[in-house]
Every structure is written in structure tokens, then in C-alpha cells.
């Protein structure tokens, strides 16, 4: 089974693009499943289910979504193998831009959109900088020049990735995207695998539920601003 991890800032078009990619894979008689990771709630599973593909949802609640993802991905792989999938797509929202869900030897995709502003590619961390494929969406509503400048900025942040434009509404580019999915490695398990980059660190009193504010309550991994 080919596992593909897809991440990207909220509302960048991950789901729309994957829906179009899935249609192309289904047309080729492939068996596809999706794991949707989100924070508080999601309705995207219904959109996937409407295409008739098996889908699982993981809600991280008050945990860092990245940490939640990495603690659960192996179970999802097991589920995918049991379901006899050819492709398992994991979709996770990158909320703090420092997210780092990509593992070595697993095809890593980042979705980013043209409307996010010219400085966004440099602000997004490992989920963009360590991706194998960067998909740029929403190109149908900005000018050609802005698309070119934005793609250049993405190139500055990740000189090695394949950059591809996909339109989540019309699906233009989705077929081409799936041709890259076929080149993904087979993933039997991620047990013993390695992340491409460390995840955002979190171990302080607030991680453990502290609600009081003030020096006396700050413990653990604390970083101070130079105000």
C-alpha cells in the first residue's frame, strides 16, 4: 500500500484537491482510503464518503495535532492494509506553520494557496520545506504574475520539491498530481520509521492543563520573548 501524507495550512484546499485526485485514481480502478486528521471537528469525511471511499477521522482535541498524528498513523496503516487499499491518503491541517508531519520514505505533499500572501512560503516550516510535492492552489483567481512570483517564493523555501498547480474547483492538475502518487513508496509500517524533522516541541505546565498566568506557573519547556 502506498501511503501519502498531505498537509497544509487550514483552508488551503487540501480536501478539494484530494477529492479530485481520488476521482482520478478511482477512474483507474484503484482502491483508495483517507484518514482525515483535524482538531475540533470536521465534516470532510462526508465528502470523501460521498465518493464511496473508506474514511477514518482522528480529532486531536487539546493535543498538538502533529503529535496526535504521529502517535496514530501506524494504526491507520494497519487499517488501510486490512481494507486492501492501494493508496492511503492522510490529510492533516497544519495549524501553527511549524508542523512537521512528513516521514522519511513516505511521499510528502504540502498544499499552499496563492491567496496566503507572498511571505507565507518562508513562514511555513518543515511541512513545506521537507515536502516532495508542493501543490499551489487557488491559481484561478489571482493574476499570472502573482502565480509566478508565489511559485518562485515556494522554490526559494524548497528548491527540491516538485511544484504543481492544481485547481480544487475544476480539478485541473489533479490528474497530473496522481501520476506522481504512483511513484510513491510502498509503506508496510511506520514502526521504526523516522520523521523528516522534529515536531514542534511542547512540554510545559500549560500542556498539562495549567490555566493560571504568571511566572510561578510556568514550568518545563519555556521560551521567553526579548521584549
Amino acid at each position: 500500500m502506498k501511503l501519502i501524507t498531505v498537509s497544509g495550512p487550514p483552508s488551503s484546499g487540501k480536501t478539494s484537491i484530494l477529492l479530485n485526485a481520488i476521482k482520478a485514481l478511482l477512474a483507474d480502478n484503484k482502491k483508495v482510503g483517507v484518514v482525515k486528521f483535524d482538531c475540533l471537528s470536521t465534516d470532510d469525511d462526508k465528502l470523501y464518503a460521498a465518493l464511496g471511499v473508506p474514511v477514518r477521522v482522528g480529532l486531536s482535541g487539546n493535543l498538538c495535532p502533529d503529535h496526535y498524528f504521529v502517535s496514530n498513523i501506524d494504526d491507520c496503516i494497519e487499517w488501510g492494509k486490512e481494507s486492501g487499499l492501494d493508496f492511503l491518503l492522510s490529510e492533516s491541517a497544519g495549524l501553527c506553520n511549524r508542523c512537521s508531519p512528513h516521514a522519511k520514505n513516505v511521499l510528502a505533499v504540502c498544499v499552499i494557496d496563492n491567496l496566503m500572501g507572498i511571505n507565507t512560503p518562508k513562514k511555513v516550516g518543515p511541512m513545506l520545506k521537507f515536502a516532495d510535492i508542493v501543490i499551489i492552489s487557488k491559481g484561478d483567481i489571482v493574476s499570472q504574475a502573482e502565480r509566478e512570483v508565489f511559485a518562485f517564493k515556494v522554490r526559494q523555501s524548497n528548491a527540491r520539491a516538485k511544484i504543481i498547480h492544481v485547481n480544487g474547483i475544476t480539478g485541473q492538475g489533479a490528474y497530473e498530481l496522481t501520476s506522481l502518487f504512483y511513484d510513491a513508496n510502498e509503506t508496510e509500517t511506520l514502526n521504526g520509521g523516522t520523521l523528516r524533522f522534529s515536531m514542534p516541541a511542547a512540554l510545559c505546565s500549560y500542556c498539562l492543563g495549567e490555566t493560571k498566568i504568571g511566572k510561578d506557573y510556568q514550568m518545563g519547556n519555556i521560551k521567553k520573548i526579548k521584549a
Binding site: 496563492n114 491567496l115 500572501g117 507572498i118 491559481g139 484561478d140 483567481i141 489571482v142 493574476s143 499570472q144 502573482e146 512570483v149
Partner: peptide, 13 residues
């Protein structure tokens, strides 16, 4: 291919 459509706008500040 460069594309130009009437739905496209400049969004950059």
C-alpha cells in the same frame, strides 16, 4: 502556459 481570465484579480498588497 500562462493563463489570464476575467475572474483573476490582483490580491497583493
Amino acid at each position: 502556459v500562462a493563463q489570464l481570465s476575467q475572474n483573476m484579480n490582483f490580491v497583493m498588497d
